[in-house]
Design a protein around this nucleic acid. Structure first.
Lengths: 313, 313
DNA sequence: CATGACCATCAGGGTAACTGATGATCAACG
DNA sequence: CGTTGATCATCAGTTACCCTGATGGTCATG
């Protein structure tokens, strides 16, 4: 078994082969390709060594060359290969301009609900054929791990990350007190007034930890009576009178008539929403644009009016 | 538009690319491929110039390299291309051994009926996956033209051809007189006895011309009352009493009880059946084998007993 | 027989590719 | 916190290859 080895095949060979098959003579093919007749002769000879057999019969004299059966057999696949390579080149161009591509983005509940629709909407406008794969998790560090392992191109994250990740800050998301309407008088509520009050919250995740740490450093030991990672459930429990909740503003529906929002005094340090990617990792043009769009869209949240001002003024 | 041009792409590039993507480091890929790490580094750099973008992120230090989005996008097509090239190589091997292929053969009625079934049968045994395309014509020079133009790889022909074609002689096919049983007494018939006798024959083709030329050079001007190129029809007309016929032995059914065969005195020069191909044209291995098989099979016809010996003895 | 069109081959110069060595980077480890 | 080891980039040098230009051989044409 003499397995023909085409590891040394070059596109030049196939281009020359195709040209000669089309033109009928080495000279015309050479002229067309900007080579010397000698060069084409050597290229074809080289290809014939590679495939271990003559590809053209050279009748001699002024008669055109003709494909041998082997050449005839190779011509189709050769042309198909050339076409395929051309298609790959075009596809790379489309990739570079963002006409085609794929991007995998990590996200979590509140961002999915409030921010992502705006970003995705603009992405679909700009890159209608780019696949946007979303990966939502509210678990502890699942997004970080996935981002670190390369599964995600980008991820929305809470807080600033340095070292492993690079990031762009999007907006600050203040913590607010969520209560039943009328439970507290409109306006700020002092943290001290929340001592012993039954509270609803999330399981330990970066956001919840930030929250609790803030409360404790203010001297308050919160009294959690229920924990769930579903933001809607938290609000529902508040409405049901199970307790109050300290939540990032983005996690609640400000217009929900069943709840009332209050600033806290002293205010907890806001959580910072950023979009991050692996340090040193090349971002695709599409991913870069995604980041920019996220930044632009986030101005809406950075500048949003705090809801209690309108309602309590 | 900066159309990525992959004319300078070489398989080496893709092999190296694939190896690095698999192995994770340039060094391991180099070792696997029998190159230096430096060589792989330069090959990848070269490929990156071709596609105008980094394919790997090099984190530095002992960490493995990782595909950039561009590299990720290219990897699939690159591997597919490699697979395709490998498949082409295997296909060429199969072509060389005759496992796959195609052969176009010109033929004419009598050969189709008597010789070809034997040849094709053996070909199908030896090369079950080779396509055998047959092209039958009894017209004047249609086979010669098709063979000369390259449409046919091989063709059965009458007579010896030199110059334009190369050929192998297969067997000699003597002319016999076809009559109704009992019309002449068994045994040879003198040409002189055929003067004025109504005759059935073919239209002008190489075989018929050979026939008529032979008769005329013996001083006989044949009296054709009907011409058809269908051998069966010729025999049928003889049976019907329209006339007698001078035919190559291969064109009649010796065992047909409705006719009787007679040698001619003096005998006409036999037609020579050969198989021919364009001079200087490379024959595929399958075509070469076809010729050999045709030669072997033809021994049957070269050595066949002349039918009148058995019947008239 | 001369001409012209064609391909193969040769010698050469130039370029590209591989090798081997060196330097820079960074994780891991003590 | 320095040392070690693994990694890739780069450099210089050599080799190998490819293209050019010239030459010679072949063959149809007139």
């Amino acid at each position: 078994m003499v397995m023909t080895n085409l590891r040394d095949l070059e596109m030049r060979h196939l281009v020359a082969f195709d040209a000669v098959a089309n033109e009928g003579t080495f000279g015309k093919a050479a002229e067309k390709l900007g080579y010397t007749q000698s060069a084409i002769s050597q290229q074809i000879a080289s290809l014939e060594r590679l495939v271990d057999g003559k590809l053209f019969d050279r009748p001699g004299g002024p008669r055109p060359v003709e494909l041998t059966p082997l050449g005839h057999h190779l011509l189709g696949p050769a042309r198909e290969l050339l076409a395929r390579v051309g298609a790959i080149g075009e596809d790379l161009d489309r990739f570079r301009t963002g006409e085609v591509g794929q991007i995998t983005v990590g996200t979590y509940q509140s961002v999915s609900a409030k921010v992502l629709p705006l970003v995705v909407g603009r992405m679909r406008q700009e890159f209608p054929d780019v696949q946007i794969l979303l990966y939502e998790s509210d678990l502890d560090d699942e997004l970080d791990v996935a981002l670190g392992s390369g599964e995600l191109d980008l991820s929305f994250v809470v807080g600033d990350w340095t070292g492993q990740f690079e990031s762009r800050r999007l907006f600050e998301d203040p913590f607010v007190l969520v209560t039943r309407p009328g439970e507290y008088k409109p306006g700020p509520v002092r943290l001290a007034d929340l001592a012993e009050v039954p509270m609803v919250g999330q399981h330990a995740n970066s956001c919840q930890l930030l929250n609790e740490t803030g409360l404790r450093s203010a001297g308050l030991e919160p009294n959690y009576v229920f924990r769930t990672n579903d933001n809607g459930t938290v609000s529902a429990m508040v409405k049901a009178g199970l307790g109050v909740a300290v939540m990032p503003l983005l996690c609640v529906e400000p217009d929900d008539p069943g709840i009332e929002l209050h600033p806290l005094r002293p205010a907890l340090e806001s959580r910072r929403v950023s979009i991050a990617w692996r340090a040193g990792r090349t971002l695709s043009p599409v991913a870069q644009r995604f980041v920019e769009i996220a930044v632009e869209v986030s101005e809406v949240f950075a500048e949003r009016p705090l809801p209690w001002k309108g309602r309590a003024a």
